[in-house]
């Protein structure tokens, strides 16, 4: 760091790379411990299975990253996941022919929630943490009111396969879950959108300094709204996968929004905008999921997940704060 202090850009790039590295190192260490406890986690098939179960969290983290980079938070993701799972079960009602129509409807719902979040934040000027907490209550309440608190209906196999089918005897990798294919496609799309387009640069500019971005001609409001839409659509995708492998439950999405934020932060994203990468979010989510897997293997109570997540959030943000302080 000290060697590069005279050049600003390389330093910043280096810190971003450092934080990706940090998440990568955490993930490798955690997965190493898992592999020591359960050596079969080193099998390609089990690793694919691990990726399959981590896929929703990674997809959520990629979506959340868009909002975080734009300077906000999206706390309504978990509620959208719950809505998707409940709505899918009720709309499909076990009829396999309905699957693709219903998936389209689900994405339309996600679009509506994302637009609502974005419009409330951009035009009503409600801080996103309160706005999305509000829509979280609203969407959760709607999902529960619609299903009457006890979901009816069943998900047909062709819907559930998106989350749970594993293709066997695929060349190179052996077994390949559909969820992992979806995961790769979504991650690549998110990476492209954020790091290879002018839109991605605008998003970063808006998160860094909205006033400056506005003066530079960036359409601040549409950019910010689009971030919330991306986030909500990724929540729909994650919800479809979760419905696929865990089935219908009214708690399907509880707490996922915080996990997604934690994943981004572990991956080096700066809260309130301006810095972060998809690769960081990817490894942040993998680290978090490896940690949860490890807790399960150690037989610790599920509830401690929350506590650990709190500690990680504080540590991750705290480290960023200290590093920032040192560099200024």
């Amino acid at each position: 760091m000290t060697v590069l202090l005279n050049a600003v850009r390389p330093t910043r790039r280096r810190t971003a790379w450092l934080s990706v590295n940090l998440a990568l190192v955490i993930f490798v260490v955690l997965y190493g411990v898992i592999a020591i406890l359960q050596p079969n986690y080193l099998d390609a098939a089990l690793f694919m299975n691990f990726l399959r179960r981590a896929a929703p969290l990674i997809i959520l983290a990629c979506g959340q990253l868009f909002v975080i980079l734009s300077g906000g938070f999206d706390l309504s993701m978990g509620a959208v996941v719950t809505l998707v799972v409940l709505a899918a079960s009720m709309l499909i009602g076990g009829d396999p022919d309905m699957t693709w129509t219903v998936i389209a409807i689900l994405y339309a719902m996600g679009l509506a929630v994302g637009l609502a979040n974005g419009l409330i934040v951009s035009f009503l000027k409600v801080p996103s943490i309160i706005a999305t907490l509000g829509t979280m209550l609203l969407v959760n309440g709607l999902a529960l009111a619609w299903s009457g608190g006890a979901p009816r209906g069943d998900l047909p196999d062709n819907f559930r396969n998106l989350g749970r089918l594993v293709l066997k005897d695929v060349p190179l990798v052996g077994s390949l879950p559909i969820a992992v294919v979806i995961l790769v496609v979504v991650t690549l799309l998110a990476w492209w959108g954020l790091h290879a387009t002018a839109y991605g640069k605008r998003l970063l500019a808006v998160g860094d300094n909205p006033r400056a971005a506005e003066l530079a001609g960036v359409p601040v409001k549409p950019t910010r709204i689009s971030a919330f839409v991306v986030s909500a659509l990724s929540a729909v995708t994650a919800g479809i996968l979760i419905g696929g492998f865990s089935g219908v439950s009214v708690n399907a999405g509880r707490g996922l929004e915080l996990q997604a934020i934690a994943a981004c932060v572990i991956g080096g994203a700066q809260l309130l905008g301006g810095r972060g990468t998809i690769v960081g979010a990817l490894f942040g989510a993998l680290s978090l999921f490896a940690l949860f897997t490890l807790l399960n293997l150690l037989g610790l109570p599920q509830a401690l997940r929350d506590s650990l997540q709190g500690l990680i959030l504080i540590a991750a943000v705290g480290v960023t704060v200290l590093r920032y302080r040192r560099s200024t």
């Binding site: 000027k125 409600v126 706005a131 509000g134 209550l137 006033r211």
Partner: peptide, 24 residues
């Protein structure tokens, strides 16, 4: 619960909407 969520947003926006700058 739905109404509560909507009311919280509406209530905060009554004050926030007069903000000139951008909020996150």
């Amino acid at each position: 619960q739905v109404l509560r969520g909507a009311i919280v947003i509406a209530a905060v926006s009554v004050y926030a909407v007069r903000n000139r700058g951008h909020v996150a």
